[in-house]
């Protein structure tokens, strides 16, 4: 279990309970269960207290928690017959973006998402979920396929942002993102998107421009990272708490602004504390969202998606 800095007191209590139980295992005469249970209760209360009203910066930390379920976990649990399709047919296959054909409740769909990886080796392999142009071009290719064969598209967004590297720029990072966003707006099949962790700027927009956008309770979606914003506007990256506050990047604020259509509740203490429950909740949300578009025809879908974006933000936070 990885603890976040604000969870430190919790780590101490849970650590103590764990220690007690370990001691008891070595010595069968000791009865520590009552004491351990009391500590458990204390930890549970503290957890509730901590997560009752997370500040925006803490939400960023939870959204980036390394133990959260990632794209691969969702695909494995919610989809059957997942058949990954690779490559952008131009240059390479980007491992930061996974996608392919699959069935969701037996219905064939195209699923695309950012994968961050969950240990050092896989994180490097997936480039920490930061896609290069190839990733976006692969997504465009898959969306085109979905469009031709009438398959709904489901995207799972979890990226710190598009990769800021030399090769990525050389190969047209900005053009690739622009084309992916454009494709999202052009396809005549339902496009459902879920932000499962971090929705980092343009790298997220390229997948999250959808008919319906759901966000997990502690996920974020922002034009810039709080650290980046703080270093530009406050000239001090350490002021990220204030920046996170000002940017209104939480699912709750984004719902008020009309950007997020649905919030998916997370288990107490965040998605990382109960992966299975989180994944199941996301599955239910996707199912409900897909149902809404069952009989929509192509033209109506595209027109409604366009209108959604043209009308967006007309009211501000007062909405």
């Amino acid at each position: 279990m990885n603890y976040l800095d604000f969870e430190k007191p919790l780590a101490e209590i849970e650590g103590k309970a764990e220690e007690l139980r370990a001691l008891a295992r070595g010595n069968t005469e000791m009865d520590v269960e009552a004491e351990a249970k009391a500590l458990d209760k204390k930890a549970q209360d503290l957890l509730k207290d901590l997560y009752k009203s997370l500040t925006p910066w803490r939400k960023c930390q939870v959204a980036r928690h390394p133990d959260r379920p990632h794209c691969r976990d969702y695909i494995n649990a919610l989809f059957t017959e997942y058949t990954p399709l690779a490559g952008d047919r131009n240059f390479a296959d980007d491992h930061a973006v996974m996608g392919g054909l699959a069935r969701f409740n037996d219905q064939p769909v195209v699923v695309i998402g950012h994968e961050k990886g969950n240990d050092t080796k896989s994180r490097i392999e997936h480039n920490f979920g930061m896609a290069r142009p190839e990733g976006y071009r692969k997504a465009v290719r898959l969306m085109d396929m979905a469009d031709r064969f009438g398959l709904p598209v489901i995207t799972l967004v979890d990226t710190p942002g598009a990769y800021p590297g030399k090769g990525a720029e050389e190969r047209g990072q900005s053009e690739a993102i622009a084309r992916s966003t454009q494709k999202c707006l052009e396809i005549g099949v339902p496009l459902i998107s879920v932000i499962i962790g971090e929705g980092g700027s343009g790298g997220a927009v390229a997948f999250a421009t959808a008919d319906q956008l759901a966000m997990l309770e502690h996920s974020i979606y922002s034009v810039i990272s709080p650290e980046g914003c703080a270093s530009i506007l406050w000239k001090d990256a350490e002021r990220m708490r204030e920046a996170a506050e000002a940017l209104r990047l939480t699912a709750q604020d984004l719902e008020k602004l009309g950007v997020c259509d649905r919030i998916i509740p997370e288990p107490m203490g965040g998605a990382q504390r109960d992966k299975a429950a989180t994944i199941a909740a996301v599955g239910q949300a996707i199912d409900a969202m897909l149902r809404k578009h069952k009989d929509m025809d192509r033209k109506k879908l595209i027109a409604a998606r366009r209108k959604k974006y043209l009308d967006l933000g007309a009211k501000g936070l007062a909405a």
């Binding site: 622009a178 966003t181 454009q182 999202c184 707006l185 052009e186 700027s201 343009g202 927009v205 421009t209 979606y221 922002s222 034009v223 810039i224 914003c229 530009i232 506007l233 000002a246 940017l247 209104r248 990047l249 984004l254 602004l257 950007v259 366009r306 974006y309 043209l310 967006l312 933000g313 501000g316």
Partner: peptide, 21 residues
């Protein structure tokens, strides 16, 4: 994008793309 408009500045990416389309 204009950071002071937060997510709404980011949403100009899809909005302007609609205009191009």
């Amino acid at each position: 994008a204009r950071m002071q408009e937060g997510i709404l500045s980011l949403m100009q990416m899809p909005r302007t793309t609609v205009a191009v389309n």
